[in-house]
Amino acid sequence: MKKILVVNVNWVGDVIFSSPIFKALKQAYPEATISCMAPLRVKEVLECIECLDEIIICDEGNVHNGIFAKIKLILELRKKKFDAAFLLHRSLTRALFVYFAGIPNRIGYDTKKRGAFLTHKVDWIEVNDVHRRDYYLNVIESFGVKVNERRTVLVPKNEVTQSVMTILRNNCVEDNDRLIIVNCGGNWDLKRWPKENFVELIEKLIGEYKQKGIKVIISGAPTDIVLVESIVEQLKEKPIVLVGKTTLIQVISLMSLAELLISADSGPLHIANSVNTDTIAIFGPTRSEITGPKGKGKAVILQKDIECNRQPCYKLDCDDNVCMKAITADDVFKIAVKIISDKGK
């Protein structure tokens, strides 16, 4: 095969879980051009994935919302004359795109009655029975593609890393400072650690490391600004706040410069772990067996068994969130101190 399309998923963490696919395909088909179709919001993550030659934007919530925009996208795909499409996305619409684009080999899970539009139906695996990375890898493995490296990997761009270092210098970070990054946000409230726990943890970290050349940084997206402001206003000693000041591709470089990231189950957790940065992962309603970090960095998973979270919980109207409250600031701080101490040896 000379031209291969991977129809990817919609969210940062899941796209990172898909990253081993591209290297495996390139090893199996070294002369092939590997393209990926995904929403605009994950483009900067895809730019940091090895063995990916082309990114095609498919944004049904925006530019491809109407029927004529969809037809235009199908025609663009048809012109590229792909030999095969591997569908990681489970939607019927994505299957219709590659079907009407005339791609001869269409490989994916037979979900949502889309089997008639696939040439190779992948035996169904319940999405919460295996890790999400393996769920995606199974699509190419079922087609006979061998996967030699299953770890998730992101490669920061050198020029972007230089821009991040400039941002750090402008925020009173010296080149020889060591960095602990705290990510307070999350894509849904149920996975968020209580903000009072972040206040206590950040106070402890700053108190421990203020005189030791280790800076505490809070990172996050613009949507996290209000949350982080409510945390920082309670702190006597202020951390460096970069929330809303970096692009997604800059976050990838920022994480690569850190000694440690502390985060709940979120995109930044998987970014940091995939650039070989150590992480403390605070899990509550989700399960690390399903969505835990799978990169090169050391990952310490903190999760308390409170019975209702023995399986992934998606009860978004939960008014207690005891699974996250059960993990204390002291739990996290003790592990952070050990990781930083071990790195200093």
Rank of each mutant, 00 (worst) to 15 (best):
K2Q: 12
K2P: 02
K3R: 14
L5C: 04
V9P: 05
N10M: 07
N10F: 11
D14G: 03
S19F: 00
P20K: 10
L25T: 02
I34K: 01
S35I: 00
A38S: 04
P39C: 01
P39M: 01
K43P: 01
E50W: 02
C51I: 01
C51R: 08
L52H: 00
E54Q: 11
I55M: 04
I55N: 07
I57R: 03
G61V: 07
V63P: 05
I67C: 01
F68K: 12
A69V: 00
K70T: 00
L73D: 05
L73N: 08
I74C: 00
I74G: 00
K79F: 09
K81I: 06
L87S: 05
S91N: 09
A95T: 11
L96F: 11
L96C: 04
F100D: 07
A101I: 03
P104N: 06
N105D: 08
N105A: 13
G108V: 02
Y109K: 09
T111D: 10
K112H: 15
R114V: 12
R114E: 11
G115N: 05
F117L: 14
K121C: 11
K121H: 11
V127E: 15
N128P: 08
D134N: 13
Y135A: 07
Y135I: 04
Y136C: 04
E141C: 12
F143N: 12
G144V: 11
N148E: 15
R150C: 09
R151P: 02
T152F: 01
T152M: 03
V153Q: 08
L154D: 11
V155E: 08
P156H: 08
N158H: 13
T161C: 08
V164I: 10
T166L: 12
I167K: 15
R169L: 14
R169M: 14
N176D: 15
D177W: 07
L179G: 03
L179P: 06
V182M: 10
N187F: 15
R192V: 11
F198V: 07
E203R: 14
K204N: 12
E208Q: 13
Y209Q: 05
Q211V: 05
Q211I: 07
G213E: 12
I214Y: 10
K215S: 01
A221Q: 03
T223E: 04
T223A: 13
V228K: 01
I231P: 03
K238W: 06
I240F: 07
Q250F: 07
Q250D: 10
L257W: 04
L257Q: 00
A258I: 04
S263C: 09
D265A: 09
G267Y: 05
P268H: 00
H270Q: 13
H270D: 13
A272Y: 01
V275D: 11
T277M: 14
I280D: 02
A281I: 09
S288L: 03
G292H: 07
P293W: 04
K298V: 06
K298C: 02
I301L: 06
I301C: 00
L302V: 13
Q303W: 11
E307I: 15
P312G: 08
Y314R: 14
M324C: 13
K325S: 13
S341I: 07
S341V: 02
